[in-house]
Structures are given as structure tokens and as C-alpha cells.
Design a binder for these strands. Sequence first.
DNA 1: CATGAATGAGTTTTCATTCAT
DNA 2: GATGAATGAAAACTCATTCAT
Lengths: 219, 219, 219, 219
Amino acid sequence: MSEYQDLKTSAPKTPRWQRKKDDRPQEILDAAIELFVDQGFSATKVSQIARKAGVTPGTLYVYFKNKEAILQEVVMKTLSQIFDEGNAILESYEGTSEGLVKILLDKWWEAVGSGSKISGIPKLIISEVSNFPELADFYFKRILNPTYTFILQVLMYGIKKGDFQIADVNATTYMIFATCHGAVIDAHSFKLAQKNNISMDAFKDHLLNIILHGILKVK
Amino acid sequence: MSEYQDLKTSAPKTPRWQRKKDDRPQEILDAAIELFVDQGFSATKVSQIARKAGVTPGTLYVYFKNKEAILQEVVMKTLSQIFDEGNAILESYEGTSEGLVKILLDKWWEAVGSGSKISGIPKLIISEVSNFPELADFYFKRILNPTYTFILQVLMYGIKKGDFQIADVNATTYMIFATCHGAVIDAHSFKLAQKNNISMDAFKDHLLNIILHGILKVK
Amino acid sequence: MSEYQDLKTSAPKTPRWQRKKDDRPQEILDAAIELFVDQGFSATKVSQIARKAGVTPGTLYVYFKNKEAILQEVVMKTLSQIFDEGNAILESYEGTSEGLVKILLDKWWEAVGSGSKISGIPKLIISEVSNFPELADFYFKRILNPTYTFILQVLMYGIKKGDFQIADVNATTYMIFATCHGAVIDAHSFKLAQKNNISMDAFKDHLLNIILHGILKVK
Amino acid sequence: MSEYQDLKTSAPKTPRWQRKKDDRPQEILDAAIELFVDQGFSATKVSQIARKAGVTPGTLYVYFKNKEAILQEVVMKTLSQIFDEGNAILESYEGTSEGLVKILLDKWWEAVGSGSKISGIPKLIISEVSNFPELADFYFKRILNPTYTFILQVLMYGIKKGDFQIADVNATTYMIFATCHGAVIDAHSFKLAQKNNISMDAFKDHLLNIILHGILKVK
DNA sequence: CATGAATGAGTTTTCATTCAT
DNA sequence: GATGAATGAAAACTCATTCAT
């Protein structure tokens, strides 16, 4: 077109690429987790991740050894961020048992339920258990077991205060855990399939109701 | 091609339930579903299916158009076998509401919980929702909605008899459904990862307990 | 052109490919060794090997795990074929020491010197020592050490018969070995570069002469 | 670009032999030759050279057009430094033929045998003959032919003085050359593989002995 | 000049699918 | 029909080279 313009004015040339050393890895991980959760590991192409992250495939290999390393890091990193808050609340909490459960479920739901990055991880793990046993191990050690222990502590709090009467604490703990865990996975997939005609918030309320009055028998 | 019933028209009639000695397609489907459920669709190699089915890769293409067709058929066929029994029970049942729920949960658990072919399907569907929306659609139409309706009918049975007092029938139905559904998926994955130190039967008992006394408030 | 012909006559259609299960691996190895010796491992592309072997790159992976496995096998297989004949001659030989040396050098030259597959291996090994230490180890264990021992035995034969007077048998052995070994490598490269204006046969004669009269002091 | 001497025209003159504090090109070449000799050209990564030279990959391209140019220059430059000394000795030498051979072999061994930069060049050339014919040509023109001529001159010196009786001067020359050349290559590789249980110095002594008494028949 | 993150052209590798046997 | 070697299209990965900083 006007080839001269560029010569005279300092035309805004489009740089072929941009240096973003510090941000790149996270951008890649953000792109990757969404695709992994959505499509699964094998079905996700590195070119897709790259495109979504706004880079070329080669760039992925500047920051990660290979596709599998991206999965590892995305899971580990995402999982490592959870639950600190929960423990803090538990330690300093002084109110009713019912209130405690409510607060923690709210927090958990906020972190996991609504569509955060984290919410897809359980589904991803479950899909890939047998392909990446190390990841499943990590998930068990870092998430499931702590969560289990955490729920157990909440129950003990209520029992000590005389609010909960629970026959088999272990089974009850497991039940609550399984219900919530199943809920996230279902919620996630249902959202993907856009078939949920029950609002997620209503779902949460019922979940709380069942835990409190169904499982924990709060009067 | 995959309409295997039609393959041997001149063959002597055998009862439908008896596997023909040369029932290649079914052997292939049996091999396929196990691998798909375990590893996911993409991660499963055609050669693996063939090896597990005791044939060679080429043979798969005698009976199925391609790998995807195997997935389609395996899911459709497996899913098509469910729930006939349940409806039959419901229609002729005359006992207590509590007994009905118990019987149906037992049946369902037997079919789905213990490790049958079917038990892996929900996990498979959830893993592949976004890759095979048609399958998810089918699953919703043929399984989830009927199940939902089925649970609803059970609840109506109990309400009509005055056994259940339920504020929001839809939500309660969904709750029961989600709890059971999550349970299968979790159960399946936990088994894979061999991490379940709570027995599946104990889990079922608690599930029944929660449904009856937690959700349905049976006295 | 004449699209009808094919329909009527059994025109010689060119098959897209040909089954040659038993021959393929060797054809691939034959193609590979030549390229590896000529260009080195890294500089050789699998597509080159494939083209030279008359197959597509994918076929290589039917028979070999990866490019490196081709190198391993080509070297191991080629090296494993040497020297059995030499030992047989040594065991039953009854003539003069000088004649023995002559016969063995002739055999060796025939196998290694003239441009056989084997003749390039020493060069290849030397080029890739530090990249494939396992190969070098194999070469040392299977070729260099046996050769060394073999030369030593020949010298002992001559010493016992009183034909050779050798001050330091180890050093002399090594000297002969190094001279021959260097000769092959040089010979190979010089041929590649097409710079040898001294015939290889003349070279061999001088080599024999030096070994006999220079190193071994045969009168 | 690679004419690094011209880079700093306004720089204070320093004696040619003193390395400039900021002599990047030479540092790069030093790093490169070691890696090329060790691993070969293709297997050596530009980033390795940069790291070893203490710079970043980009810097290499400030001084050299590309990776191949580094090879060219490293070989040419290293080779250009040889043999001046040898010719000087030859021209002014007046002693015995045997002494001349000994002195020259010592010099040569010192320059080439012990592990100097130069000692790897023959191996490198031989490995890359067919990938870089120009280099091989250069090697032949600048090294092999001069060396050949040089050895020939030494032999003529001895013949003229009546010390050597040689039937075929060309063949003898070639023999000496090939023996020495092979020796360097072997020595180099054996060192890499750390398998030499015969000391290099002992090897040199035997080499001299063979040349003098085996090939040249000095009494 | 020096940097080193980003590229993209090329290489290796995979594997669903075909088709000569 | 059954086979499984061979394919080829596409995926993962490499790395010399560039160029914004």
C-alpha cells in the first residue's frame, strides 16, 4: 500500500513477538489446564495450548520439558494452593458448629464449585488416574487425605460441643467427602454439557442442608 | 457393519443371551470398553483393543468404521441394557416406601457399583463430554433423564403413601441422583487407584441411610 | 489417460507397498550403516534411511524403537560377525609364523579393508565415542580386546617357534593393533574423500612388510 | 564478521600473541573446537558452545555468520598454526638423520599427541569429511600434503646422507604418515574412552622405534 | 554490543487406517 | 473374512537463528 509511510514516520510496527519471561509459564499453564480439564490430556494438542496461550508451540518447550511436564506442573501448582485458608478458619473459630460447617462449605464452594481453575482438577485426575498414577498419588496425599482429616476435625469440633451425634465418624466423614467430591465433578461436567437446569447455588444450599440435617442430624 | 446381529443370517438360531463362538464384534466391544474406561478414548490405542480382543488391528475395521465408531457403539449398547428391570419392579411394587428404595438401591448397586462393565461408563462419559457431545446427549437422554424421572416416581410413591415429606421434590430428586452418580464415579476411580480403605458395601449402606433418613426423613 | 483399460484388462497396477517382513529390518540396517558411517549419527535423517531402504519413515518404527536403536543394532549386529574365522585358522595352523601373519592379515584386510560394511564401523565408533559410550564399550569388549588377544596369540606362536624376537610383547601387540586400526580408519576416510593416490592393495603389502620386518624382525 | 581482528580498529595495539581481555571470538572458538571434536558437529548445540564460552547464544551471531562458520574458522585457524616450526628446523638442521627424525617426532608429538587443541582435528575432519568436503580439501591441501612432502624431505635428507636405504620412497612416506595419523586418532579416541592402559609416552617411543628401525632400517 | 526469550522450519515419532497377502 | 506390515497424515519435539529489550 503506502510503503513510504513506514520510512518517514515511526509507524507502529507489529513486533513478531514479545518478551514476557515471568508471565509466560503461568499463561501457558492457564491455557493448558482449561484444555486438559475440558478435553483430557491425550486429546489436547500442544498446538492448542500454544495458540490459547498466545505463543508458538516451540515456546512451550522453553519452559517445560514436554507435554506431560505441563500436566504435572499444572496439577501440582493448582493443588498446592488450596486449603490453607480452611485450616486458619478452623483454628480460630469460636462459633456454633452449624455456622462453622456453613462457612467452610461456602469457602470451599467459592474456591471449587463455581468454575475456578481448581474445579476441573478432580475431574481431570479421575479421568487420568491410570495414565498418571503419580498425579493421583499426589492428589490423594495432598488433597483427599487432608480434606478427609479436615472434615474429621470439623466433625470433632461439633461432637465436642455436643452439637453432632455421630455413630460412625469415619464413615460419616467419608460420606460428606464423597458427596462434595462427586458434586464438583458432576457440576463441572454438567456445566460443560450445559444441561444443568438446577442452579449451582441451589445445589449448594441443598448440599449444606443434607450435610447438616441429613448427615449430621443438627436439630 | 457394526450391526453384528445381521452378520450370519444363515446361522442356526441361538438364544439371544448366548454368546456365539465367533462373536467377534462383542469381544471387541468388551475389550474396548474396559480400555476406554480405564485410559480414556484418546489414550487407548487401536492395537491395544485388538490385542485384548484376541484379534489383529485390521479385524477391527471389518466390523467397525473406525475407532470412534467403537466408542459410540460400546457406549450406546452398554447403556441400552439398563433400567428395564427397575421399571418393572416399580410398576408391580406394593410394599413400603422404605423397602422400595432399599430394593432399588440394591439393584442399582449390583448393576453399577461393584465393577460391572456399566460402572465405568459414567466416568467415561464425564471424561469425554466435550470430545463427544453426541454421546453425552445420548447419556442424558437415555440415562440421566430416565433416572431422574425414575427417582422422581419413587419419591412420588412415598409421598402418596405419606412416608416421605419433601419440600422441594425436584431438588431432592436431583440430590439423590447426584449423590449416587458421584458415588459411582468416585468408587470407580478409587478402585483404580486402590486407595479405598472403606469397603464399597459399607459405603452403600451409608448411602442408603443418608437417602432414607437424611434426605427423605423417613422416621 | 486410458481409464477404461484398467477396468477391462488386468493391468499391472503398482501396489502402494510390498510386504517383506523378513527382509525389511536388514534392508533398513544396510541403508542405515552406510549413512551413519558416511555422515555420522546426528547428521543422518531417518527420512534418508527410509528413502535409501525404499520405505517410508513410519516403517522404520515398525522394526526399531527409534533412531538410536537402529544405530545400536547396526553396530552390534555387524560387529558380532567378525573373527570367528580367525580363531579357527589359528587353532589348526601348522606352517611358518610368517605365513600365519600373512594369511591372517589377508583375511582381515578382505573383511575390513576393502570397503565392506564392517570397514566403516571403526570410524563410526571413533566419531561417536562420547555420544554413545555403551557402543564404545561394546566395541572394546567385543572387538578391540579380542583383537588384541588374538594378535598376542599370533606373536606367541612365532616366539615359541623361535621366529620372532620381541622385547616387549604387550607394546608390540599394541603397536600392530594401532597400526592396522589406524589404517582402516584412514583408508575409509581417504576413500570417501577420493584422495588416495596410493592403492589400498599396495598399502596392505607395505603394512605386512612393516609388521613382519619392522615390528617382528623376521629375517 | 568472523574477521575479529578488524573489529576494534581504534583499540590500543597489543602484541598479536597476547589474548585480549575481551577476545570473545577466540573464546568461542576454543569452546567450539573442544565440543566439535568430542561430540561431532551436528551433535554439538550452539547453546553448548555459548555456555562453555561464557556467553549467550545470541553473542555467537555477533561474531559468526552461523554454526557452520564457526566450524570452518575453528578448523582453518587451528590448522594454520602448524608446521612453521618444523620447516624451520629442517632448513637449518645439520645433525644425524636419526636425530632429525627424533626431534621432529618429539615436536609433532608435543603439538599433536598430548591432548592439545590440534590433536582432535584429525578425528574431527575424518568424522565430517562427507558433510564438509571443503574442510577436508583444506585439510588435505594444508596439512596432509605438506606433511607428506615434509616427511619426504626428511627421508631425502637421510638418503642423501646415506643413512636410510629405502626401496619405494613414496610408499614409505605414506606408511610413516599413515602410522602417525592413525596413532593420533586412536590416541584421541582411546583417551576419550579412557581405555588406554598403555601410556601415550610409551606409545610414542615405540612409534619412533618402528619408524627408525622397522621402516627406515637405521642400523 | 550483549542478551536470551521466542520463533519456525525441520526433525523425529506416533498411530489410526489401509490393503497386499 | 482375517491378517499385520506398511503407510501417511498429524502430532510432539528440537534447535539454529532472530530480534525486541
